[in-house]
Design a protein around this nucleic acid. Structure first.
Lengths: 224, 224
DNA sequence: ACCTGAACACCGTTCAAGT
DNA sequence: ACCTGAACACCGTTCAAGT
């Protein structure tokens, strides 16, 4: 008896909503990292059972997508200046920076293409920038795909969480490359390993923009 | 007593070796897919306990890398003809085709950069092709990174295993885009969804080659 | 309709103990 | 040195049963 009274002992358990679930997930993400954002941990945070979450979220992949779109909300409205190329580069850099904070999310985004509100806003803005640059329409559409994939994949590469280790493996292999069996690698060793991540990213974006503006899309393009 | 006799009852259990482990892993991969290539399943196949594998393989990531390099052995020696651009495109297409058979491996390769024998062979060949095209040396090194990342990421995108589902989500969002809030998406809807995967891949590779040949690498490139 | 506990069917990795 | 069983510390998802 008197359930109201005992309820008041601790903060009222808020009703489950999709939005509340995603918000709690973002909280865990920020405090403990993506790896801890599991259905079970999330349910625990919301004082319920993991099974209850499946009423609002189809599966873990959808949860990750919702989290990403939430994070994307902050970058969509980032102002920038300069020509369309610079503004496009700034926008992509901001997108990549967000993903680099949680590379595991980038991995999810690569596998399950996002389709959330803020992601669509990003696509919209990028299309407008390419239009401003007088890039032909078909190349705009295919081009943003390439650009977003590049930023996403670059962030995803860091999903091994704190491992100077794997990188070392490639660096060692490159340095130890035999000059007779692998003359090219030996000759290019320094360049293969050079460059700050930001430098590489900036170069990559410019490579893509140049390539996109200069490469015609095939005339016949059947819908997939 | 007579342990030799009872041993002969079933095929002699072969001694564990790193090579044998990787070969068994490739077998499971081909029969049942990457998802089934787990330490436990692999140990079962080799008639031992999962813990025993850790003598030869540091962890699952390293196992995946070893599997990938094994698969790469077949493509490294694929002959091709045409100019350097065509041969480069053919090589990358063969690499991508291998990864597309097992997109989960592509995901692993993206996160833990490969450094196996056959991967290095691929790098070596690509560097030589860009040299043939008189691409400046620094751009060759940075360029192959971009090209390999593109092929790997494109394959990794298919790691959701049989889901027309996620793709539908984006397609639906694009088709339902509001003309007033998302005029660009509405205008580009058809192009955003057009193109066979092979067409897109071919275009992407050519975009990258064009961009790489035309975009200078920064003069100051501190080693990472 | 929503929520739950319990179960199903798994994981990777470590470690003490054996040979 | 190599190999093992058992344990530790988890997962996602489903489902029958409750409200």
């Amino acid at each position: 008896m008197a359930p109201e009274k005992s309820r008041r002992e601790r903060p009222a358990k808020p009703a489950l909503t999709r939005h509340g679930i995603v918000a709690a997930a973002v909280g865990i993400l920020r405090e403990e990292g993506l790896r801890k954002v599991t259905m079970r941990r999330l349910a625990q945070e919301l004082d319920t059972g993991a099974a209850s979450l499946y009423v609002y979220v189809r599966n873990t992949a959808e949860l990750h997508a919702a989290i990403l779109d939430e994070l994307l909300g902050t970058i969509t409205r980032s102002s920038s200046d300069g020509g369309w190329r610079d503004r496009l580069e700034q926008l992509l850099t901001a997108y990549a920076a967000t993903l680099l904070e949680y590379p595991g999310l980038a991995l999810s985004a690569l596998v399950a293409r996002p389709s959330g509100k803020n992601y669509l806003g990003l696509v919209e803005t990028m299309l407008a920038l390419l239009a401003e640059g007088d890039v032909p329409p078909e190349r705009r559409a295919w081009g943003i795909d390439l650009l977003l994939q590049y930023a996403t994949a670059t962030a995803a590469e860091h999903a091994d969480e704190e491992s100077p280790e794997e990188w070392d493996a490639l660096a060692r292999a490159v340095h130890e490359a035999d000059e007779t069996t692998h003359p090219q690698i030996a000759a290019h060793a320094a360049d293969l390993l050079s460059g700050q991540p930001a430098q590489r990213m900036s170069w990559g974006i410019r490579v893509l923009i140049t390539g996109i503006t200069g490469t015609a899309v095939p005339a016949e393009r059947n819908p997939t």
